[in-house]
Simulated scan of single mutants.
Amino acid sequence: MSNPVRIGVLGCGRVAQRYLEVFRDELAGEAQVVACADLVPEKAERFAAALGARVVNGLDGLAAAEPDLVCVLTESGNHAKHVLALIERGVNVVVEKPVALRPEDALAMRDAAATRGLICAVVKQNRYNPAMRFVRGAVEEGRFGRIVLAGVRVHWCRTQAYYDDPWHGRWSMDGGVLAQQAIHHLDALQWVAGPVEAVCAAGQAVLNSLEAEDTAVAAVRFASGAMGTIEATTSARPRDFEASLHLVGEKALAKIGGIALNRIETWEPVDAHPGDADVPALHSQEVPTGYGLGHGPYLRGVLETLRQGRTDVPVGVDEGMKSLRLLHALYTSMERGGWVSLADAPVSARLGL
Rank of each mutant, 00 (worst) to 15 (best):
E96M: 04
P274I: 07
R153G: 05
K255S: 06
R158C: 02
A64G: 08
L282N: 12
A236E: 10
A252P: 06
Q17G: 15
H246D: 09
Y128V: 05
I259S: 03
V22K: 11
D68G: 04
K255E: 11
S284V: 07
R237W: 15
G294A: 00
E319G: 10
T115W: 06
Q125W: 01
P288R: 14
E335K: 02
D165T: 09
L178K: 02
V313Q: 07
N129E: 12
E286S: 14
E140D: 15
H273I: 05
A277D: 15
A243N: 09
L62T: 11
E265V: 09
L27S: 04
P98C: 11
G175Y: 02
V313D: 07
G145S: 10
A138C: 02
L189P: 01
A198I: 08
L20P: 09
H295C: 01
A31K: 04
Y19T: 01
D278L: 15
L73T: 10
P67V: 04
P314C: 05
D318I: 08
A16P: 07
G337S: 01
L149C: 12
V287I: 06
R153M: 11
A131E: 04
N208Q: 12
G249S: 06
R14W: 08
E304C: 08
L282M: 12
Q181P: 00
D38S: 04
I264P: 01
P288S: 09
L245P: 06
C157N: 15
D68C: 12
A49V: 04
L62F: 13
V9H: 09
A121P: 05
G249L: 05
I183N: 02
A252T: 09
L261M: 07
T266W: 06
P103L: 03
A349V: 13
Y19V: 10
Y128M: 11
E250H: 09
H79Q: 08
R310A: 13
I119T: 01
G58S: 03
E104S: 15
G8R: 08
W171K: 03
E141I: 00
V139A: 11
E66I: 03
V317P: 00
N57P: 06
P195Q: 12
P297S: 12
L327E: 08
H283P: 05
L324W: 04
V123Y: 02
A50K: 11
G145P: 06
G169C: 13
Q180W: 12
H273G: 12
A85T: 08
L247A: 07
S172M: 03
I256E: 11
V302D: 00
V93Q: 05
Q160R: 10
G320I: 00
A272K: 15
L59D: 07
G292T: 00
V287F: 00
Y331M: 09
S76L: 04
S209G: 03
V122I: 04
E231D: 12
A37P: 00
V139G: 05
M132Y: 10
E211Q: 15
G145F: 11
V148G: 04
L353D: 14
A113C: 11
S323Y: 07
S235H: 06
R6P: 01
